[in-house]
Amino acid sequence: MDLDDLRSFAQVVRHGGFSAAERATGERKAKLSRRVARLEQVLGVRLIERSTRNLRVTDVGREIYRQCETIAEGIDATQAIAARARSQISGNLRIACPPGLARYLRTDVFARFLLLYPDVHLEMHISSQRIDLIQERFDAAFRVDIDTVHDQALTMHQLGRLDRILVAAPAVAAQVAATTIASLAELPTLSVGEHVEHDEWLLMNGQGRQHVVAHHPRFCSNDSATVRDAAVAGLGVALLSSAACSVELQQGRLVHVLPDWRTSEGIVHVLFTARTGMSPTLRAFIDYVAESFPSLTGSTLA
């Protein structure tokens, strides 16, 4: 059954004839007649009795017309729902974010977004695990990577970059001052991730020279804030994002050691399923975070 055939039949009945329906809709009378005839053939019943001068809707035709009106109301309601979804910033958002990055972005960033859009409900899932957006039904996920390799089914919006630097508590920093990059692994180290047996830091200096520090971490965690706190406690040298420890550096609880050496910048991006058909709510969230990111980290948008 063709929906357009049902619409044509309803127009003919509503306006009291093929000629009147033609005038009201602009649809040619011959085309309306063909559609109604095809609908009758598909249903196997007579809907309209015709003569050269008169038209009469059969009993079954009147019943089907009432159903057509119900269908038309449903279509109008469906279109209205879709129109609201395209224009209103409201509804639920499920966002995944690594623990460290969530702390960099800070809760007040998300709070300001919710205050700006009071009809939005935000679920923030904090996890160091890689989230499958489609399987786990998330709207977007934040990630920090050295490279930009990602699932080709996802769209990536780059927010900016975070560099990683070597930091230590003042007492440990004094030991580092007496060493070089070549002997750094001889000091206690702290790692972000699951590297309790072995880790490697690929560092480079201002002249572009690279050096790999292969070391056995004294302490590691997949939460960078926990590693930062361990560094403050004097447990060893850590390689952390400058944004993760900016407060501790300002307060002197951490010291930037071997400042000529750092890692490649970590790329901060937000992933989502597709730009086409994206809800205005998710678009508003991504735009808001993109605008807020530089002021939080001092990084520049790419």
Rank of each mutant, 00 (worst) to 15 (best):
A238D: 03
T300S: 15
S264A: 15
T263E: 07
S242I: 07
L301T: 06
A284F: 05
A214P: 05
R218M: 06
M204G: 13
S292Y: 10
V247R: 14
L282G: 06
N205H: 07
R253L: 10
V227R: 15
H216E: 13
V255R: 13
L235R: 13
L296I: 14
C220I: 03
V268N: 04
P217R: 09
D287W: 09
D199K: 11
L301S: 04
E200Q: 07
R283K: 09
F272C: 04
L258G: 08
Q207G: 14
C245W: 01
V237R: 13
S246P: 06
A233F: 06
C220V: 03
D229S: 14
L258R: 01
D199P: 05
V212Y: 04
N222T: 09
H269R: 13
D287Q: 10
S246M: 08
V268D: 03
P259K: 11
L203Q: 01
L249N: 03
A225S: 15
Q250P: 10
G298M: 06
E291Y: 15
A214S: 11
L254C: 10
P280E: 03
L271Y: 02
A290R: 07
A230E: 11
R209A: 15
S242W: 14
R228G: 13
A243E: 12
H216M: 05
G277D: 08
S221C: 05
G266N: 13
A244Q: 09
T273Y: 04
G206Y: 02
G266I: 09
D229G: 07
S295A: 09
L240Q: 00
C220K: 15
E291S: 15
N205D: 02
V212K: 13
S241K: 13
V257M: 01
Q250F: 10
H256N: 12
N205I: 05
V232K: 01
A230D: 12
D199Q: 14
S242L: 12
P280L: 02
H216P: 08
T263I: 10
E200M: 07
S221T: 02
S295T: 14
E265S: 14
T263D: 11
F293Y: 11
R218Y: 00
F272K: 00
F272I: 06
L239S: 14
G206Q: 04
I267L: 12
V213P: 11
N222W: 03
G298S: 00
L202R: 15
A238M: 03
L301H: 05
A284Y: 05
T281R: 07
Q210P: 06
V213D: 13
H198A: 14
T273L: 12
G208D: 02
G298W: 03
E265C: 14
E248I: 06
D287F: 10
A225L: 07
L258F: 00
D199V: 05
M204A: 12
G266V: 05
V268R: 08
L240A: 05
D223C: 09
P259W: 07
A274D: 09
Q250M: 12
L239I: 13
H256L: 11
T297A: 00
S221N: 13
V213W: 14
F219I: 03
L203R: 01
A244D: 14
H216N: 14
D223N: 10
T226L: 10
S224N: 00
R283T: 05
Y288A: 09
S295D: 11
S264D: 15
